[in-house]
Nucleic acid binder design. Structure first.
Lengths: 146, 146
DNA sequence: CTACAGTCTACAGCGACTGTAGAGGCAAGG
DNA sequence: CCTTGCCTCTACAGTCGCTGTAGACTGTAG
């Protein structure tokens, strides 16, 4: 299979059609060939590249880091220290979020287990939320909302 | 101190001025009084409410849930089951994210420790990212990027 | 030939803010 | 009184990584 449409690429790499077009619009995926009627045509290299992107996204790498990683891939003679640094930075980010989430989990658990039913007026959960300064002093939970 | 400007409220509750105005724009904070020159004036109740919001945000509650919690606060006679449900849902969200992040951490750690330096061409990190299907099959890491 | 799935562009929306621009307000020091 | 310098105002664009929508066109199977 030499050339494929965006739908086939989408299935091959496990990335939605709209997302592929989005990646093209931000220059993360290159500009593909077009059929005479204007449809995008991709080759196997595009599958490779898109799979790489998808895997990196699954691991939480931001788009900019992925761009860097792809650039680096095309300089095979270079030292891989830079790649390593990007991965380590990502690991550090993940660990930071982990520790923040663990703190949140602890507090939520504590809050919920304090609640013994009853009315709003006596609700320990709302009490905990109203009492400021109980926990997590100083740091916040940016990007952790759900 | 009966009335305070937005800057003082900001310090009192630990929420940025711009964020307070944003909360007002989405009707999370009520419409405050204004001085003759048009500056917002808040009272201690606003400090309470904003602190509550901040604490809930720190715990990752989405704005809509916080809105619900505030509504419930004003019905002290009701059963607190609803409050409990909101908190439990948030705890479930946090736990889901935790487990996803733990998986990410594991894979990143594995990737990085496989790297023994050298050139890009032999970089295990890039290899791991190129080999698809190694891990995390089927689920993705939405909202976990950093 | 007809139906239907796939593809196209362009733009708005999500969540929870943050940043910017340009204007006006207020209190303290000289 | 005037300046200095911070505070506040509004309105809107930008962040991140997409997702959803509208409306038109294309390709294919029956």
């Amino acid at each position: 299979m030499k050339q494929m449409t965006i739908g086939r690429l989408s299935k091959a790499a496990g990335v939605k059609v709209t997302t592929i077009r989005y990646y093209e619009s931000i220059n993360l995926m290159g500009v593909p060939d077009r059929s005479t009627s204007g449809q995008r045509l991709y080759d196997d290299e595009a599958v490779q590249r898109l799979s790489f992107i998808r895997h990196a996204r699954d691991l939480g790498f931001p788009i900019d880091s992925i761009r860097d990683l792809i650039d680096l891939q095309h300089q095979p003679g270079e030292d891989c220290a830079h790649v390593d640094a990007i991965a380590r930075r990502q690991l550090a980010n993940v660990r930071l979020k982990l520790s923040q989430l663990e703190a949140l989990e602890g507090e939520l658990k504590r809050m919920i287990s304090a609640c013994e039913g009853g009315t709003i007026a006596s609700c320990k959960v709302l009490e905990s939320l109203s009492d400021h300064g109980l926990c997590l002093d100083g740091h916040d939970a940016k990007g952790l909302s759900a």
